[in-house]
Amino acid sequence: MESGSFVTGPGGRRLLIGGSQAGTYLWDPAVLAGPNYPNQVGKNNYGGAREYVTADFDGDGVDEVVNLNFDDTGHDLMAQSLGGRYQVSNNALTQVTVNTLT
Rank of each mutant, 00 (worst) to 15 (best):
G48W: 00
P29V: 03
P38L: 10
G11I: 01
A55S: 13
W27P: 02
Y25L: 05
V31K: 05
D56E: 13
F57Y: 14
T54Y: 04
N44Y: 02
R14N: 12
Q40C: 13
Q40W: 04
I17F: 03
Y46E: 15
G12T: 04
Q40A: 11
A22L: 03
V41T: 14
A33L: 15
F57V: 13
G42Q: 04
G48I: 06
P38M: 08
V31Y: 00
A55F: 04
W27E: 08
G47I: 12
S20W: 11
N36I: 06
G23T: 06
G34I: 00
W27T: 01
G34M: 11
G48C: 06
N44I: 11
V31M: 08
G42P: 08
P35H: 02
V41K: 00
R50K: 12
I17P: 08
R13G: 02
Y46G: 07
G48L: 07
W27G: 06
L16K: 03
A30K: 13
A33K: 11
G19W: 06
F57R: 05
N39E: 15
G47A: 09
N45A: 13
Y46C: 05
Q21D: 11
G11T: 10
N36D: 14
V31Q: 07
Y25W: 09
L15P: 04
D28G: 07
G23F: 12
K43R: 10
W27I: 04
G18V: 08
A30T: 06
F57M: 07
K43T: 06
A55Q: 13
P35F: 00
N36C: 04
F57A: 11
N36M: 07
I17L: 13
N36F: 10
S20G: 08
L26I: 06
A22S: 15
Y52T: 02
P29Q: 00
A55N: 15
G23H: 11
N36E: 08
N36W: 11
G47Y: 08
G18M: 11
G34V: 00
F57N: 13
V31A: 11
I17E: 00
G34K: 09
G47D: 14
G48D: 00
A55W: 14
Y37E: 15
G19L: 09
G18K: 02
L15D: 00
N39G: 15
V41L: 01
G42H: 05
L16I: 04
A49C: 05
L16Y: 12
Y37K: 05
Q21K: 12
G48N: 05
G12F: 09
G47M: 09
L26K: 07
K43G: 09
S20D: 12
N44W: 07
N44K: 06
G48V: 00
F57Q: 01
A22N: 13
L15K: 04
R50M: 12
Q21V: 15
L16T: 07
D28R: 02
A22P: 02
G23R: 05
D28V: 10
K43C: 00
L32M: 15
V41S: 03
A49S: 14
V31P: 08
P29H: 10
D28Y: 10
Y46I: 09
Y52V: 06
W27D: 05
P38E: 03
G19E: 11
G12L: 04
N39C: 09
Y25G: 00
G23L: 12
K43L: 10
